[in-house]
């Protein structure tokens, strides 16, 4: 099994210490930091997404795999320089919207997006529209991903979109939304660009929104 195949398997199996060790070893062997994404991390997390979609993996398995992937990305991100750093799949500002403190779903999406090669600016929970606007400007993000778990807070997604529009940023970012009470219809009605019903779908959606 090649070094990268071994690493893929360790991510899928959720073995963070093994992933860390393999990453460090490969770097010592002269592998370039940017190579890990297309050759190990992205394919491993694609497989995790497939297993989740096919009901082979559930929340605990996905969390463990994502943590294992993070063991690699935590080492690799600071090493990406110049071109490599800017060659990420895109920069995503993600958050749970104002008034909402639930973040498990948002965290899983963020971890999977990161493993898919996106640069993540995670605003955490209870993120105000102003905070979203500021982060988009500061990090030149091309995607905003908003999450809500409550029927009482999903309405605040609208406020986020309105704030981006009045700051003149609406045409510069794509906006995707998700969370338990959120639906495709809701996403459309508030003027979002897409809805991710689960984490793997959110990753596919992010890829297609950035490509368009």
């Amino acid at each position: 099994m090649s070094q990268f195949e071994e690493m893929q398997q360790a991510i899928i199996d959720g073995k963070a210490p093994v992933v860390k060790e393999l990453t460090e070893q490969a770097l010592r062997d002269g592998v370039k930091p940017a190579e890990f994404f297309p050759k190990a991390i992205v394919p491993a997390m694609n497989e995790v997404g497939r297993r989740m979609r096919d009901c082979e993996f559930f929340i605990p398995e996905v969390l463990i795999a994502a943590r294992a992937a993070r063991a690699a990305t935590d080492i690799l991100r600071p090493l990406l320089v110049g071109d490599e750093a800017s060659r990420s799949a895109g920069t995503v500002v993600c958050c749970t919207v104002k008034g909402d403190l639930h973040d498990i779903g948002k965290n899983i999406v963020a971890m999977m997006l990161e493993s898919a090669g996106f640069r993540i600016v995670d605003l955490g929970v209870d993120a105000s529209p102003e905070k979203i606007v500021q982060a988009v400007q500061e990090h030149k993000a091309n995607l905003v991903a908003m999450s809500a778990l409550l029927t009482t807070t999903m309405v605040n997604m609208k406020a986020g979109i309105a704030a981006l529009a009045s700051a003149g940023l609406r045409d510069h970012v794509k906006i995707m939304v998700g969370g338990a009470p959120v639906t495709e219809n809701w996403a459309r009605s508030i003027g979002a660009d897409g809805y991710g019903k689960d984490a793997p779908t959110a990753v596919d959606l992010a890829r297609s929104l950035v490509a368009n």
């Binding site: 009901c55 559930f58 929340i59 605990p60 338990a180 019903k197 689960d198």
Partner: peptide, 12 residues
Amino acid sequence: GQQNGPFISVKT
């Protein structure tokens, strides 16, 4: 349960 399926596997 989550919106699209169980949180955990039937086996768990």
